[in-house]
Each structure stands twice: as structure tokens, then as C-alpha cells.
Nucleic acid binder design. Structure first.
Lengths: 268, 268
DNA sequence: GTTTCCCGAG
DNA sequence: CTCGGGAAAC
């Protein structure tokens, strides 16, 4: 099957609901990983997604963070709790197996500033997620770690690498860690398919006309294991939601895979 | 000329802007008195009304209160300050002469509760407005005192006169004062033209389905001097804005006058 | 319920 | 700039 996956930091699912539903109808991803839903579980607009034809798994908290996974096919497995304090303490982690693929959706802490304890938390969150994956999966299973990773790995991933060097999101320590994580057996799919493109997924609201001036960052990623990398046919940023009225500060990243082409080592 | 006047407590002019502009295009009043604009002067959406073909006078304050007068014809005179502390202390009073008619727009304090100092302030505000009018005008000039007066004068002006007797807005003291003020030479135009109609202009947001159950109050009025009363051809409540999405808790009161029929004692 | 302000967070 | 939350007012 042709399988479409997407990640989208919506910055408030209630504020973004009209835009998000419109985008889902246009793109019809088989799986959509959402971050920063910013609502408690009871306030999640579940019905709207069911009406749109999706199964929904969500994990919210008051005010901040919160993640959700929408799937056209019912999820085969769901992991809501990892029993790791760093991953479970805030609503930032959700894993779902759908269409035979494990999808890990994370909203990695932004980090605030390199001196702030939040930066240590960010690094720990990245490490623990990688460890959790390592403990549970091998690099030869079809796995997609996606979401707002909040790290721009390379100079071409920020609008001004000189000025931003050392800033949170483009700090040597996180970039090094990001590469180290890839070393386990993950491919940065967008960069893999587009080695030279300068394409962003986030533009700060606070910079005037940041979209028009393209003052962006590539912070949202699809990290895939080798079998999925080989099954990939496309991975691109969809700019349209960021250009509409009342946008999120992020815009979706979308990938297409030929799951039939998947060569899995294990029998199941 | 046929002259249409309206009063509308918008409960936040920024939140109500789409509804208000739509309503202005449908009704095209020559003068529209707005209350509870709830914005500072710098935040008033002046341009939107100019584009809609209106001259605008407004007086706002932070957070609460605030009044505005829209006129199709340029105002001949404007009174923004009365030099009376009670009238000028909060943004509740604005007077404009347009098309030869003096229009006094007030947002009378709600009063909170009969024991609260705010209730005394309400009574004082009503008295001072009446005094200001008396000091400046005679009952034989065309004058319209309109706005959210926050008094339901008679039992037929509230949804449950028994239960509400003594409540703020339907307290004997304010009703008595309201009648006393009319005694100077003002006519409650809606009641004058519709002696037996039970028609409201306000329905509390907090009562579930208050509009459908018609749990309302008649708090918004057009008090006119005799010449205007004789020139009046119509005075009715326009329910449509209260029935649309995102309504104010009030709905407009609209009146039509034949100004040619005006017999003014003075020459100008 | 609804609006506005102020706050913390990004 | 924008979101959500809590307070105050009606």
C-alpha cells in the first residue's frame, strides 16, 4: 500500500481545528502526528476527528504540550506510558503501531536557553526516547520517530546559522546528540531525499513577517529505520497551512512510503 | 427626511465587529449608539466604520464600559466631557448633535446589587444625566436619550416580575427614578408606540437558553422629547443579531422618525 | 457564557 | 505574535 505519514505541531488544537480539519481532508494522511495540542484530555475535540474518519489517540495536560496520533486504520498497538519519568512527566510522548509500522510521536522540549535546566531536560528527553526505542526495537524494523524534535541538525536547517549558532534549537550539544541518535540506525528522511534543500518547518510568530522573509528553522522531522527509508517515495514540507489565516507557527512535514516494498527481516 | 436611530450594547466592539458591520449594512441607521465597546481609544476599530460609511465618535477605557456614536452625516456638535465627575469618571457618556437632533448616548452602570455602592453610583448617574440635559436643553427641542439605561421600568419589562422584584435593574428605587426622569418631558418611545408588548433587549448569557425561553429584560431605551415622539413612525427591537453566532447579550433597538414633520419652537 | 486583561510559554 | 488559563465583571 501507499502510506502517507505526517507530523504537525498545531500550537493549540482547539485554535487550529478548522485549519487542521481542512488540511486533513486535502492531504488524507494515513497517520498524522500532532504536537502542542495544549489541552487537557477532557477538552480534546475527539468527535471532530472521528467524523473526519480518523481513529485518535491523545495525551494532553493543562495549558502546555500534549500530543495526539490520528490514524485511518485502527491502531494495532498503543504506548501511552514508558515508565520513564523523563518521557512520561509531561504529555510529550505517544507511540502507535499502525499498518505494521511503529510510529513514535514526540514533542521534544524546546529548552529555553542553554543555561536553563530545561535544556538539560531536552537533552535527557532525546536520550531517553532513543534508549526506549533501542530497548524495544531493532534498526531493521519499520519504525518512524517523528514530531517536533526541536533541533535543527545542520547549518542549512536555520535561516542564519552564524547568528543562531549556540541558540537553543541550534546548539552544538543538541546537534551532536541528534547525529549520535541517527547513528543507531535512523535516517533523517527529509534531508536524505533532499540533501541540498533549505526548507523550514517553523517560523517564529515574534519575528515580523518571518514567513515572507523565510526566517525559519527545520525542527520537525521524520527519522526512519532503513527499511522505511528504502520504502520512502517522498518527503516534503507542506507550506500551505502556514500561509493561511490563523496559522500555527509550524507547518506539516509529509512523507509517502510504499509499504509493499518493505523488506522486513522478521516474519510478522 | 426619514431618519433611523439605533442603540446597541455590543459587549466588546472587537469581538462583535463582524456581526456589527453586517448589521449596519442591513439596517443602515443614520445614527447608531453603541455601549460597552470595552476597549481603549487606541484599540477602537475606527477604519472599519469609516469604510462602512460612518463618522465615528468614541470614548473608551481599559477593559470595561466605553461608548461610541456612528453617524452617516458628520456630527454638528459633540460633547465628550460634561465636567461632572459622575458622568465623566468612566467612559459611559457621549452626546452628539446630528441631523438637527441631540443624541445622548449613555451606558448606565449596572449597579451590581442594591446594597453595593455601585447602585448608588447608578442612581447618581441617572440623576446627573437628567440634570445635565435639563441644564442644557428644554423639553421642546428634538432630543434623544438612548443607550443601555439598565432599568426595566415596568413589570412587563422583565421575564418574571415577581421573582425579579428588588433585583438590580428592576428595583423600585430605579424604576421610580426612571419615571421621575420621564416627567421632565421624555417619552419612553418603545412603550409609547407599543403599550402592551412584552419585548426585551437583553438576555443573560448565564441563563441556559435564555433567548429561546425568552428570559429577558427591556433595559435599552429611546427616551425622546415631545417633538421627536410626534415625529416617530416606528420603534422596534431587532432580534436577529441576538440569534446569530457569537452574539452580544443585548440586541439593538431601532426607531424611525420623520424629521420633516418636526415642529421645533426655536428657529435653528 | 462571554469578553477583556494579564500572565507564562514559545 | 499567539495560545491557554485564571480573574473580574456582567
Amino acid at each position: 500500500m501507499v502510506w502517507k505519514a505526517a507530523t504537525f505541531n498545531v500550537n493549540g488544537i482547539r485554535a487550529r481545528l478548522p485549519l487542521l480539519l481542512e488540511w486533513l481532508q486535502e492531504q488524507r494522511p494515513h497517520v498524522a502526528c500532532l504536537q502542542e495540542i495544549k489541552c487537557q484530555d477532557k477538552d480534546f475535540p475527539h468527535d471532530a476527528f472521528v467524523e473526519a474518519g480518523y481513529h485518535v489517540v491523545w495525551k494532553g495536560q493543562k495549558s502546555f504540550n500534549g500530543v495526539a496520533v490520528l490514524t485511518t486504520d485502527p491502531p494495532q498497538e498503543v504506548v501511552r506510558e514508558t515508565d520513564r519519568e523523563v518521557l512520561d512527566g509531561e504529555a510529550r510522548f505517544l507511540a502507535v503501531k499502525t499498518c505494521g509500522v511503529w510510529v513514535i510521536n514526540t514533542y521534544v522540549p524546546q529548552g529555553r536557553s542553554p543555561q536553563d535546566p530545561a535544556f538539560g531536560y531536552k537533552l535527557a528527553f532525546l536520550k531517553e526516547t532513543a534508549q526506549w526505542i533501542d530497548a524495544r526495537f531493532a534498526p531493521d524494523v519499520p519504525l518512524l520517530w517523528t514530531g517536533d524534535i526541536n533541533v535543527a541538525p545542520d547549518p542549512q536547517d536555520v535561516y542564519d546559522p552564524q547568528r543562531l549558532d549556540g541558540e537553543v534549537g541550534f546548539h552544538p550539544e543538541e546537534r551532536r546528540l541528534f547525529k549520535e541518535i541517527l547513528g543507531w540506525g535512523l535516517v533523517d528522511l527529509f534531508r536524505h531525499l533532499h540533501p541540498d534543500e533549505k526548507q523550514f518547518t517553523f517560523w517564529d510568530y515574534r519575528l515580523p513577517r518571518s514567513v515572507q522573509r523565510n526566517l525559519g528553522w527545520r525542527l520537525d522531522h521524520m527519522l526512519v529505520t532503513e527499511p522505511l527509508a528504502q520504502a520512502a517515495r517522498d518527503c516534503r514540507v507542506d507550506m500551505t497551512p502556514r500561509q493561511k489565516p490563523k496559522p500555527s507557527d509550524h507547518t506539516p512535514l509529509v512523507a509517502v512510503f510504499h509499504l509493499d516494498a518493505l523488506s522486513v527481516s522478521s516474519p510478522g
